[in-house]
């Protein structure tokens, strides 16, 4: 098992290197002198003196061939130096550290919504396939998958904040500010989870051992609780795990709409004003989150079911 984990870790190294390279490339293709951008922030002036820029270019190895530039950039990154934001003149690391917890919390709450609401509905719909609840949940999930999350967010603001006045509109001053955005963000995951849970439950209930148990006169409720639920919920939870990265990286529009100071808004603002250092850092954070999640899922697959090894070449 150790070997598998090590192998899997080893496999992520080229991916990681490529990601840093892509981030580096981003800086190269974007117009604007990175040395000047850094100096603007450090010296707090719009036009830093020419000599200082030259000095900085030397320090950043910007006068060398690209592979030396990349190496020097990478070693700066590994030392925690990701440059300065062109907009706020703060260090990029500071910006990321401020924004990360917000998005982390937002996507976690979104995930929680799916778990505590979609899964129970899915279970009930699966126990009574083609029942009223099943049809209702199918309808909800069709709409849920078709509505853009930001449009749902707008409707949510209109209903819950303006009309009912029970939730705040925008900004971030406490956990209650995350309810509406998390709900909007979770909608497509919510829809899929609900249907997946329903299907999984219905399938498990069709299995031979469950039927046997029922025919033996065991209480249906007990069987579902004791046996079926456990088996049915595993694929759903693993699916949701794979979706965490998407929630994390997909919060951009929602964060902008609700004025949440998270990674997504940071990234959108950076992209809109070509704030290259911040864009680089965000991209790397998004990618690393993705990689870590995939790693965890692969390892947990392996732990749960050693046969999976074969499909993972």
């Amino acid at each position: 098992m150790k070997r598998f984990i090590l192998l899997r870790l080893f496999q992520t190294i080229p991916v990681l290197i490529s990601i840093t390279f892509i981030a580096f490339l981003l800086m190269m293709v974007t117009p604007g002198d990175p040395a000047e951008i850094n100096l603007r922030a450090m010296m707090n002036t719009e036009s830093p003196p020419k000599e200082a820029i030259e000095q900085m270019r030397m320090e950043m190895d910007l006068d060398k061939p690209w592979y030396i530039q990349y190496y020097s950039w990478l070693s700066r990154v590994l030392h925690g130096d990701l440059g300065y934001s062109y907009q706020t003149r703060k260090s990029t690391v500071e910006e990321i550290l401020r924004a990360f917890p917000v998005t982390f919390l937002l996507s976690s709450i979104a995930m929680l919504f799916s778990i505590i609401i979609a899964i129970p509905i899915g279970i009930l719909a699966g126990i009574h396939p083609n029942g009223k609840l099943d049809h209702l949940s199918r309808g909800i999930s069709i709409i849920g998958l078709s509505i853009p999350d930001f449009f749902l967010g707008i409707l949510g603001i209109l209903i819950f904040s303006i009309t009912l006045k029970i939730l705040p509109v925008a900004g971030y001053k406490g956990p209650e500010y995350l309810i509406l955005p998390a709900f909007a963000l979770s909608i497509s995951l919510f829809a899929v989870t609900m249907r997946l849970m329903r299907t999984s439950m219905a399938e498990v209930l069709e299995q031979e051992y469950i039927r046997t148990a029922i025919s033996k006169g065991l209480d249906r409720g007990t069987i579902i609780r004791r046996h079926a639920l456990k088996n049915a919920i595993v694929p759903v939870l693993t699916y949701m795990g794979t979706q965490y990265g998407w929630l994390f990286g997909g919060a951009m529009i929602i964060e902008s709409l609700f004025a949440l100071p998270g990674m997504g808004r940071l990234f959108v603002d950076a992209a809109a004003s070509r704030d290259i250092m911040v864009m680089q850092a965000c991209i790397m954070v998004f990618a690393i989150i993705f990689i870590i999640i995939n790693l965890c899922i692969d390892i947990s697959y392996y732990l749960l079911d050693p046969r999976m090894r074969d499909t993972h070449e």
């Binding site: 505590i116 899964i119 126990i127 939730l167 705040p168 001053k173 209650e176 309810i179 409720g221 579902i224």
Partner: peptide, 25 residues
Amino acid sequence: MDKGKLKFILLGLLLLISLTSFTAA
């Protein structure tokens, strides 16, 4: 089963309420 379902829903409601009660006085 009904109890289990109820627990789920109650838990969800509780969470929602505890979150909303933060609204500034």
